[in-house]
């Protein structure tokens, strides 16, 4: 169990009480740290890994406080957003690198390298150099090397963000299995809410250095603590308007263009359509409702064009009031 306490991701510029938080990451679970760019995800990872960072805080692993950079570095494995591998070592030597540092026997190293390379699908590439691999393969290598160390904490800092989206989806499914099998504390940062649902057992929402909510992804989705928390888990954004001094927010997927069956009293909104986009499977209708930009997400294609007036419906239960 990894506990972080008294964490302040922006010391000096943001020192007030809400900026300081604590969090517990459980072993055998994937914790997705979700936040926009510059929200402090990387700083949190670097703090836990004992790397140079402006973030401050205490890190405890299984009840033991990890002070000092080197003790923390012993405990973690890390995968960076950029594909970082030793360019002068082959794939096999790269994976073996942390094992060499621990002075394992050659037979043990060989066995571990083959095992990990097989699990990550790079076993046919063992003799190549990193620059001879594709981006996806390079990141698989980086993940293999991080796992080779059998560290008690595995940190993955937006590992798939530089890959194209088909590769991402394929790797994500594999990663879920692989990371669960590792049985360690896994911290996976991302700015994409889909990762929270597809990978995360737990999600921690960060906003501008603040922890704004944590819990199981669906729980956070259904009961957002704040508008910002709701926004972070929404794709592409949250629709909102002020009603009698209350902020009413509803997700794009909960707004309908047709009457909702079995709902006697839906809320109604009038929208002026400004743009319409579709990929055949899904459509996004952008428009304005009372001075606010709204998006409607619905399946299939719609006979809608810019300039149309639409009546939107939403169940009262889907509208969150703050």
């Amino acid at each position: 169990m990894l506990e972080v306490e008294q964490v302040c991701l922006r010391p000096g510029e943001d020192d007030n009480a809400e900026a300081v938080f604590a969090h517990t990451f459980a072993p055998g679970e994937i914790s997705v740290v979700l936040g926009a760019n510059q929200s402090g995800k990387t700083d949190l990872c670097r703090l836990i890994a004992g790397l140079n960072t402006r973030a401050r805080g205490n890190v405890c692993l299984d009840g033991q406080s990890l002070t000092g950079a080197s003790t923390r570095q012993q405990a973690v494995g890390m995968v960076y957003q950029a594909f970082v591998n030793y360019p002068n070592l082959t794939v096999a030597e790269n994976i073996a690198s942390p094992l060499r540092a621990r002075r394992l026997s050659a037979a043990q190293i060989d066995e571990r390298v083959t095992d990990l390379a097989t699990r990550l699908g790079i076993v046919t590439l063992l003799d190549r150099f990193p620059h001879e691999l594709s981006g996806g393969q390079q990141q698989r290598l980086a993940i293999a090397r991080a796992m080779a160390k059998q560290a008690r904490v595995l940190l993955l800092d937006e590992p798939l963000v530089n890959l194209d989206f088909k590769l991402r989806e394929a790797l994500e499914i594999e990663l879920r299995e692989l990371l669960h099998a590792a049985g360690t504390v896994v911290i996976y940062t991302s700015s994409d809410p889909r990762d929270a649902f597809s990978l995360g057992d737990q999600v921690l929402l960060l906003d501008a250095g603040h922890k704004i909510q944590a819990g199981a992804p669906l729980e956070v989705y259904t009961q957002p603590a704040s508008f910002r928390a709701m926004e972070l888990l929404a794709e592409p954004g949250v629709n909102y308007l002020q009603q009698h001094g209350v902020l009413c927010a509803v997700r794009p997927e909960h707004v309908r263009v047709q009457q909702i069956e079995n709902d006697a009293q839906p809320l109604q909104f009038n929208m002026r359509v400004t743009a319409y986009e579709t990929n055949g499977d899904e459509s996004f209708i952008h428009g304005r409702v009372e001075e606010h930009d709204w998006v409607v997400r619905s399946s299939g294609m719609m006979p809608v064009a810019a300039g149309d007036a639409l009546t939107l419906y939403a169940s009262a239960g889907d509208v969150v009031r703050f």
Binding site: A49, L51, N52, A69, S70, Q73, Q74, V76, G77, M78, Y80, A82, V84, Y86, P87, N88, L89, S97, P98, A101, R102, R145, K149
Partner: peptide
């Protein structure tokens, strides 16, 4: 990141400098 990774992997600085950094 390469320097940091070598440290996380458990390599000493001389090992990193002479076996990885200089060959690169």
């Amino acid at each position: 990141e390469l320097d940091e990774m070598a440290r996380i992997d458990g390599h000493s600085f001389p090992y990193f400098f002479f076996r990885i950094f200089l060959p690169i």
